[in-house]
Amino acid sequence: MRTKTKTVTLQLNVHKVTLGTKLLRNRTLILMCMPAIIFFIVFNYIPMPGAYIAFTDFNYNKGIFGSRFVGFKNFEFLFNSGKLWQLTRNTVLYNLAFIFLGNALQVIIALMLNSILSKTFRKVSQTLLFLPYFISAVLVGFMVYALFNYDYGFINGVLKNLGQDPISFYSKAGVWPVIIIVANLWQSTGYGSIVYFAALCGIDQSLIEAARIDGANGAQVIRYILLPSLKSTAIILILFSLGGIMKGNFGLFYNIVGTANANLQPMTDIIELYVYRTLINQFNFPYSTAAGLYQSIFGFIIVNIANAVVRKIDPEYALF
């Protein structure tokens, strides 16, 4: 429904009109976009020239643009350290898990919410699902520690009381992908399901009634009416999140895993943590910027590839 309206508005503006007239005509829309536009300018566009640090021998007194240009020298370290593959793999795999499991779960939650008849119960469930989204990653880190730590952790407490040996989670790298993914889903699912729920609410009820009359059961209504109507929303949401596939959730990883426990790093190290460590351990601004720039450029390439593939399959769904 929403995409339809958008196309209509766009078509209205296709007439040969001057930029000024266009701006004037859409002034309300533009005004409403202003906060977002300003946000992106201030936090994403203005700092961009700073990426130049990655190519300099940065001198505090000479500043970013006064420092000596050294070309790609600062990137050598990234490639020589051999970490790049591990970091890229972890970042991408975690994000794929977050995106696909996340969206699947969000659809399921939305369907479940949709089939709750009591309004009060639905509102309460929605709010409860929503709440974890507002919990800061710092607290999530503490909660994870409280659950999993060896000496006083909740899970090990239960195990000990049952006469079992406690498990040292913080020295087993293998369990952390699961813990991190669950923590992420727990935080984001409720919030993400809202969009799907809204899409479900927009479905013409007469369709469902007609199907019921024709003898469709609940599962069939979901399979043939609800799910197909969510398809376009799901594709758009997944495409949008693919744009951030190289962007790790620093707060979550930093607070859950920290930077001192190298045992977990093979499975938990993401580019953000690496950039942070380079900065905090070495104060090497050029090196950490170089790692960050690599991430942005690689992410940019991935988004373009994903978009090209989608356009090939169905141009309607391409982002640009």
Binding site: N80, N261, A262, R277, T278, N281, Q282
Partner: peptide
């Protein structure tokens, strides 16, 4: 470059 690599190795092994 070497210093950065050494620091990374150091921080990886020393705490453990």
């Amino acid at each position: 470059t070497e210093i950065a690599a050494l620091t990374e190795v150091y921080n990886q092994y020393i705490p453990s």
